[in-house]
Design a protein around this nucleic acid. Structure first.
Length: 616
RNA sequence: GCCUCGAUAGCUCAGCCUGGUAGAGCGAACGCCUCGUAAGCGUUAGGCCGCGGGAUCGAAUCCCGCUCGAGGCUCCA
């Protein structure tokens, strides 16, 4: 059964003529209803009395929320392409009509062509559609997910001076990306019919691709992609370790009926993958929270141990996002997310820690090659929290130094009272969250995590949830989108040197110089540089071209001249010019540029001729 | 999830409207060339025309369903 539910100021309809033979016998008079909820209903093949009952429960539930008591059931075939037969449809509609649930119910005649006129109200809950099916055990959906659509939010812009501005009155002329984020207006330069640029790049650069044999949104990563991911993962892990995070590893699936799970599940707005095994109903984690909380519950902790920081790089977290929402590396169903929780003894400590993690997140984002101009911040909190903690919130906004989007809730819907995130706005005007942190006042208790306070009393900690970088795949997406933007504006697209699968390529002018090239590559790679050798017998022009297509930063050509000289001819992608440097000068320049970043060795055979072509 | 569009060689695509032997470039294999900063030359191999059904004497081509993808909507830690 499909239902389109509209809260109306009024509806007026007139039966015109019978559409089918079995149409109801009625007096074809116009009718008018005011302050009414109209439910357009298509009864589908397979619908039964249970469906009718369930539909009425759902309708009356939502009507209670909007405070309306008058319901008009309006048969409407056009909502479905697999309608039930008219006789069944009519009987189901009559059953619905009979289940008043305390409502005042009316029904428009079945089987008639009707003309109608209506005015739908303009509030957020006025329009709503439902699909109800017979084998309705379905999978359970998180209550939070359901609640999310009903939350009443107040949107503002906060400027670095701490002032709140009405979103509708704020001047966005200097903050166009923020405007996109605020969705106040659709991005003007949205290119239609154009696939997300990074999708093409992730394939061309042999980073990642869809795996049709898996579920949508589960990607495969080629050697280049695996290397880039590993480096980003290592970088984030290093920074979190510096901050004091202790790395742990927890299971990727959990029993849905474990008592702590069941209730948390309903506080987290996500759809999950379900796995049935030996009579157990397991679900795949959508974050590292479960594992870490269940672990922390078994720790014996004193207030002296707090703040305690647990960190896990989840490979993977799973969220069964709507299929239409999945795009390349931007939105996945299986993704790698660094997730760092801090258990804090009280709100003052939580706030202090929150500040540190804000700085940590900015450092990580900067280290990944993004700066403040690349993202827009959103900050969300409950009204109470804001009133008691204005200073903290204003401090964060001041640090970012530009206006941020504010969402304020009248009451707390989720487990957190404060949350911020950095959002990247891409070439198509899409916003996606990267780093985020939250103050969670609920799960310490739910998971029975306890520490002993100064007075020898057990307490539940406040928990911060931070991902300093956001999903690793999403970081790659952002880097590729930024490169695509460079390309579009006439600059050479590049990856940061520390993330380039090949940093230096050596090309011999003729095969007789190949041995010299190999020795040179040996020498340079000893200095932790990823260098490979084009050992194919191709023309020099062809080899250069291929290296440029791979976005390789340094290209060294070895011929007669170089063999007999102290310096190398190095083509630098950044400038497009050829420079003459000694080996030491080149190594020094590279080391300088990748300072502080992790290193991994080449993840492919050094000889280009030995590699398969990954052409996707 | 909904709407629209798409799927042909490893890759990028033409052919489809108007049904009758499957096409190109790149890549691959082999050979020639031995080359100085973005594509040297030749030969050969390579196709369940996404999958399943239908109408037709006959389908890559027309119709229906499915799968996967793209864009939009909805959604979005």
């Amino acid at each position: 059964m499909r239902i389109l539910q509209l809260h109306c100021d009024y509806i007026e309809f007139t039966p015109i003529k019978k559409e089918i033979k079995s149409a109801e016998e009625i007096d074809p008079q116009s009718k008018r209803f005011e302050e009414v909820v109209v439910a357009f209903i298509a009864v589908e093949d397979g619908d039964n009395p249970d469906v009718a009952a369930k539909a009425m429960t759902e309708i009356s539930d939502s009507m209670k929320k909007i405070g309306c008591n008058k319901l008009l059931l309006y048969p409407y075939a056009h909502l479905s392409s697999k309608l039930a037969s008219p006789s069944i449809a009519m009987s189901i509609l009559k059953q619905m009509e009979g289940k008043a649930n305390g409502l005042e119910i009316f029904r428009a005649p079945f089987g008639w062509t009707k003309s109608y006129k209506m005015q739908v109200k303009g509030h957020p809950l006025a329009e709503n559609s439902k699909t109800i099916t017979a084998n309705g055990d379905k999978e359970s959906t998180s209550d939070a997910l359901k609640a999310e659509s009903k939350i009443q939010s107040f949107w503002h812009i906060m400027t670095p001076d701490g002032k709140m501005h009405d979103v509708s009155k704020f001047d966005f002329s200097k903050h166009q990306n923020l405007e996109v984020l605020a969705k106040y207006e659709a991005a003007k330069k949205r290119s239609v019919d154009e696939p997300s640029p990074h999708v093409k790049l992730m394939k061309k650069l042999a980073i990642a691709d869809y795996e049709p044999a898996s579920d949508a949104g589960n990607m495969r990563f080629f050697p280049n992609g695996r290397l880039i991911k590993s480096l980003i993962e290592q970088y984030v892990t290093d920074r979190v370790t510096d901050y004091g995070g202790m790395e742990v590893e927890t299971p990727i699936m959990y029993d849905s009926h474990h008592p702590s799970m069941e209730s948390y599940f309903h506080r987290f707005p996500a759809r999950q993958y379900n796995v049935h095994s030996e009579g157990k109903q397991l679900f795949l984690r959508f974050a590292a929270c479960f594992g870490q909380f269940l672990m922390a519950k078994d720790f014996q902790m004193s207030y002296k141990n707090l703040p305690l920081k647990l960190y896990e790089l989840t490979r993977y977290s799973f969220r069964r996002e709507q299929s239409g929402e999945l795009v390349g590396l931007r939105r996945l169903r299986a993704f790698t997310m660094p997730d760092c929780h801090a258990l804090c003894k009280d709100m003052p400590q939580a706030k202090e820690e929150f500040r540190k993690r804000f700085d940590l997140s900015r450092e990580v984002i900067n280290g990944l090659g993004l700066d403040e101009s690349d993202f827009e911040m959103a900050i969300r909190f409950t009204e109470d929290f804001y009133n008691e903690n204005k200073q903290l919130i204003e401090e964060l906004v001041r640090k970012i130094g530009k206006p941020v989007l504010v969402e304020m809730w009248k009451e707390r819907f989720f487990y957190f009272v404060l949350k911020w995130e950095f959002n990247y706005i891409d070439n198509l005007g899409k916003a996606s969250a990267l780093s985020t942190d939250q103050i969670d006042v609920e799960n310490g208790k739910r998971y029975n995590i306890e520490f002993i306070d100064e007075n020898n009393k057990p307490q539940n900690p406040i928990i911060l949830h931070n991902s300093p970088s956001g999903a690793v795949e999403r970081v790659i997406y952002v880097l590729l989108e930024k490169a695509a933007m460079d390309q579009r504006e006439g600059r050479k697209p590049m990856l940061p040197l520390w993330l380039s699968p090949t940093q230096v390529r050596v090309i011999p002018v003729k095969p007789e110089f190949l041995e010299y090239c190999e020795k040179l590559a040996d020498k340079i790679s000893e200095n932790y540089v990823r260098i490979d050798v084009d050992d194919r017998n191709e023309s020099i022009g062809k080899s250069i071209r291929d290296a440029e297509i791979e976005w390789i930063r340094y290209i060294i050509v070895i011929g007669e001249k170089e063999v007999n000289a102290k310096t190398l001819s190095i083509r630098d992608r950044k400038t497009g010019n050829v420079r003459n440097l000694t080996v030491d000068e080149l190594v020094k320049e590279i080391k300088e540029e990748i300072k502080g970043k992790p290193f991994m060795r080449l993840n492919m055979n050094r000889g280009v001729s030995k590699r398969p072509q990954i052409m996707v």
